[in-house]
């Protein structure tokens, strides 16, 4: 018996397009985050003043020779802001790297685990999430020293629990899909299924969450620095700049506005990038745009 060729009921769908669609979201995000990255890169080669140069008058308004003015110790604000950009990016990227890798690994293990093993891991993650980041940072600092590295490790650890819990749910959801069963019926091994099906299918959701975590990590580093658990002076962090300028906000508003604006620009930029990347990466969302 021969089967007929495709009937009319199976009408042709439009051809799949190869071109990567332009995404306004992605472009905007890249511009905003790129601005901060550019500032950080410039700070590596050139700074208007040395970070510990207190030769300026205290709390000078924006103008010359200090473009953004000075802080209460007479340090140049622009210089601090530029170093802060570097610190913020390092804090965000470092914590997301630690939190993302550890969280994804934990989430995969928990996602594949069954029954008591899964329950035990979930309980452990809940405890870790309930554990205050500041306390965790103090422990890490006690074990190491008060530095950006310690802050990044603490933030990354706290983040990994949140990422792991999300990844666990995503993995479980993907594993329940028919295409996993279909793939297994053709004899695909588990590691191969993880690489070809599980990771690509959890990535769109996970990457958006990681971008959100990037923003939170920058903010967390700011609060840890304020408590003396983060970047030590003379290197500046935007968070500490905000805290130090807080008392003089009415006399010298530039000290609060400048780091605040850059913090928002970075966080919003990274979030837009995550959204844009998801739009571009997920073929089912492309056509609706």
């Amino acid at each position: 018996m021969t089967a007929p060729l495709i009937g009319e009921a199976e009408a042709a769908a439009p051809p799949a397009r190869r071109r990567v669609p332009r995404s306004v979201t992605l472009l905007t995000g890249c511009v905003l985050a790129g601005l901060v990255v550019a500032v950080a890169v410039v700070s590596l080669f050139w700074l208007p003043y040395a970070p510990d140069d207190t030769s300026g008058d205290r709390l000078m308004p924006p103008g010359l020779p200090h473009l953004l003015g000075t802080d209460k110790l007479g340090r140049d604000l622009l210089t601090q802001l530029m170093i802060g950009a570097r610190v913020a990016l390092e804090a965000g990227a470092g914590s997301v790297l630690i939190g993302g890798v550890a969280g994804l690994a934990g989430g995969l293990v928990a996602g594949f685990a069954t029954r008591w093993m899964d329950d035990a891991l979930s309980a452990f993650l809940d405890i870790l999430i309930a554990f205050p980041t500041v306390l965790l940072a103090m422990l890490v600092t006690a074990a190491r020293d008060a530095s950006l590295g310690s802050a990044i490790i603490a933030i990354g650890l706290a983040m990994s629990a949140i990422v792991a819990r999300l990844a666990r749910v995503l993995v479980k959801r993907v594993l329940a899909q028919d295409y996993i069963t279909a793939s297994r019926t053709s004899g695909t091994s588990w590691p191969r299924i993880v690489v070809t099906h599980v990771l690509p299918n959890i990535w769109p959701t996970l990457s958006v969450n990681l971008a959100l975590q990037f923003g939170l990590a920058v903010l967390a580093e700011a609060s840890l620095s304020y408590l003396g658990l983060g970047t030590p002076p003379p290197n500046a962090s935007w968070g500490r700049m905000l805290q130090e300028a807080q008392a003089s906000v009415f006399i010298a508003p530039a000290g609060v506005i400048a780091p605040g604006v850059l913090l928002v620009v970075l966080v919003v930029g990274v979030n837009l990038i995550a959204d844009g990347v998801r739009d571009v990466a997920d073929p089912t969302r492309r056509r609706t745009r």
């Binding site: 028919d178 295409y179 069963t181 279909a182 793939s183 099906h197 997920d282």
Partner: peptide, 22 residues
Amino acid sequence: NRVRGRAVSAVFQEPLTALDPL
């Protein structure tokens, strides 16, 4: 895994979910 695919294979009910959407 050595038997699956070669000795036995399967087609399932719901063709949309049986293919990886990405």
